[in-house]
Computed example of a mutant assay.
Amino acid sequence: MTSAREDTGESGGLTTGEVARRLGVAPTTVRSWDRRYGLGPDAHTGGKHRRWTAADIARLERMCALTTTGVPPAEAARLAREGAPLDTRQPSAEAAGVSRSGPVRSRARTGLQLGDVRQECKGLARAALRLDAAALDELLASVITAHGLVTAWNEVIMPTLQAVGRKWETSGEKYVEVEHFLSWHVAGALRRGSPPVAAERPGATVVLACVPGESHTLPLEVLAAALAERGLPVRMFGAALPVEALVEAVRRTGPAAVGLWAQSRTTASRPLAQHVAAMEWGVRGARRQPVVLTLGPGWAGRTLPGLLRPTGLVEALAAVESVVRR
């Protein structure tokens, strides 16, 4: 196992940016803790950049752990300076930041049951629990840029969201604000990172909508962003689209595929999906119908002849691309 001494490197330690990525905070937060609470590096090296040793980072990790549990920052800083250092036996800072070389796993000290996940989940979880908007936006942008949207969603963002959801379910309505906060910032990161909407191409448009009564839009937003990355024209209609509006949207766009998201079995409507799949448009003799994808856990266990049932983002992308090419 790599030691903390090896992580920081005997020759000089980590930069402030590397420490921030490792902890899941913004670099400005690290500098602020140094300036306000005296949690900076013990030793100073030559040059303009300060370097952080394993002992310095252990104090900051304790600061993170204490503020995550609600301890005021000034008190957390005092305890961090006086208390025993936390276990710093973690992967190197380069890998703990945004590594392109493959998954780096972490059993994070965040209070969330993350399990064996990528190291970046630790940063997201800490930033979300602290309601640190700046750090969260920076981390999300970094992980999407480094790994690509699909890997970032499947291996970093979704596991963190699921851990927050489990914490909410087992804590008596606590942490609801954390889930909403994290979801909001993920949606913002998707929009900021998505390319411009592709121009209409006859027979290639994809319509995405939540079924009536369904308000969970984030997985659809991920799919929309991933399709936009691939240059496919997408029309996203968001939460709880009424039946009449959905039918009108399909009629006006003439899509190759329609994705209907249902989070709950109570909102998944088999008659609605079949009605959309039976719609036709085009000139007589060359009429077309959309391929309907039933998306989300609400459709689980339901066999709907003629409708596609992809079970994840990768499978949904493959299904849509196959339909458009056809």
Results as ranks from 00 to 15, higher is better:
D56A: 05
I57A: 03
I57N: 00
A58Q: 04
A58T: 01
A58K: 09
E61R: 15
E61F: 00
E61Q: 15
R62F: 00
M63E: 03
C64S: 13
A65M: 05
A65S: 06
A65I: 01
L66S: 10
T68C: 03
T69M: 10
G70H: 06
V71P: 01
P72Q: 05
P72N: 07
A74C: 02
A74F: 02
A74W: 02
R78P: 02
L79F: 09
R81L: 08
E82F: 01
G83I: 00
G83Y: 05
A84D: 09
P85Y: 06
D87E: 12
T88F: 02
E94G: 13
A95E: 11
A96R: 14
G97L: 09
V98K: 02
V98C: 05
S99Y: 03
R100E: 11
S101Q: 12
S101R: 15
G102R: 13
P103I: 13
V104H: 10
R105C: 03
R107T: 12
R107W: 14
A108K: 01
A108I: 04
G111T: 06
L112T: 08
Q113E: 15
L114H: 04
D116Y: 08
D116K: 11
V117R: 14
R118Q: 08
R118N: 07
R118F: 05
Q119S: 14
C121I: 07
C121M: 07
C121E: 03
K122P: 00
K122H: 13
K122L: 10
G123S: 08
G123A: 06
G123L: 05
R126E: 07
L129A: 06
L129H: 01
L131V: 08
